[in-house]
Design a protein around this nucleic acid. Structure first.
Lengths: 234, 234
DNA sequence: CGTGAAATTGAGCCTTGTCAAGACGAGTGG
DNA sequence: CCACTCGTCTTGACAAGGCTCAATTTCACG
């Protein structure tokens, strides 16, 4: 974590009606008049890599829509150990707990530079009372988070390290076959293995040709081979 | 799984207004007139140990409220491996996916004899359209499932086997210090370890006095010691 | 009693964690 | 522009943990 570095910057007020990714986000189903119910500013905020969006245990005053970039949700145990329980991308919502009046359950940190919209809790509450069009999206977001959590457990916390890594890479390279990898520490925290072991497993994949480095932590991956590793017991 | 055994039995129609655990369940917030919106029968069904409540991939025609007993939600991977992703108890709702029109994402199986209410999907849809009083409970259930999923990952899939087992026992013995343990296979599938290793770890706990068997798979546990194991690196 | 499923236990091997040393790279200050 | 520094990544050697396979034992049930 870099010292005095400013790592979050206000970028302006969001114009939700004109949102470029409107059909992806929480407000997808709102009708024009609904936007008049928004009586608090929705800020656009930029987060540098490593910047904290919110912290576990803090009072949840807002939820965030991730417009660009990648965030991790980290959960801590009393004994200090920690796990990354979810990754949030383009269109995802962070801090849904806010709508329940509960404190944040995770710490959200930017893994890639993030542009996010900060939606005050009261805005969601108001919309939720006045228009049914938000309900569907909220439910859908809870459901998709839950599905991701369950898959995370069965895919990334089950089997041997190479299998888990292969499955993660397949998830991340969805569509394009290129993956921007994170720090080995984060990799370990996702897969439930140590930093060193994560490093070794990546190295192993490179030697085997499953991964080819084409930039700083940027890899091209061979889906075919990864699928073999992911399912095969080897 | 026992062969021709009948393992699910219809027990009658539920009288939701008079439900003995009404304040725990999905319909907790409904008002009297809301019950008139229920135009399909809500069955009470009993499931024997090992009986399947619903199966992964099936069309989700109903959701279930667990009145008594304990159920496991199992998720399978293409390669055949499986994990138990959640346990459902007294008051919990199984098959929330039904409300989204999605197929079941897990297989639900009774770990202890279960009495459940089967709520047809249409009933929830109808109530959801007509009364806002169901929304809150639905959201709360999604949220609590998600929280359980996240905790499951950080507590039961992180650290060494003894730590995981200790944490699980602490969860299960909540309140009372007595735990009805499941098969070693299920135990392994919860903790992400093999059947044999689960067996060994339980045996180890017994030798150490953390657990004392007081019946068939029924144990009294020493919370103090378990908490030590759960946090300590040993 | 027999029988079969589940639990337990042992032995050896493979996987992963641990500790420590070295390599690499980006950013800093001279 | 170079040397220095700090953090991260990598690698090695060894120990510990967990898996596999196989042999018993236990127990519930017919």
């Amino acid at each position: 974590m870099k010292k005095g570095r400013i790592d979050a910057a206000w970028k302006g007020l969001a114009q939700c009606q004109d949102c470029g990714i409107r059909d992806l986000v929480l407000f997808a189903d709102l009708a024009e008049p609904d936007f008049n119910l928004i009586h608090l500013p929705i800020d656009e905020i930029e987060f540098d890599i490593g910047a904290t969006i919110y912290s576990e245990g803090d009072e949840a005053g807002a939820l965030f829509t991730i417009r660009t970039g990648l965030a991790k949700l980290v959960q801590h145990l009393p004994d200090g150990s920690q796990r990354i329980v979810r990754l949030l991308r383009h269109g995802a919502t962070a801090g849904l707990e806010a709508t329940l009046g509960q404190p944040y359950q995770h710490t959200a940190v930017a893994l890639q530079p993030i542009l996010a919209c900060r939606i005050p809790r009261q805005v969601v509450e108001r919309l939720n009372e006045e228009t049914p069009r938000l309900h569907g999206q909220l439910i859908r977001r809870w459901a998709s988070a839950l599905r991701q959590a369950d898959d995370w457990l069965t895919e990334l916390s089950t089997g041997k390290a190479p299998q888990r890594l292969a499955r993660l890479l397949l998830q991340l390279s969805d569509g394009d076959n290129t993956v921007m990898l994170f720090s080995r520490e984060d990799l370990g925290s996702i897969l439930g293995i140590t930093t060193e072991h994560a490093s070794r497993t990546v190295a192993e994949f490179r030697r085997a040709g499953h991964l080819v480095e084409i930039g700083a932590n940027l890899f091209r991956c061979d889906r075919r081979q990864l699928e073999n590793v992911a399912s095969g017991p080897a």
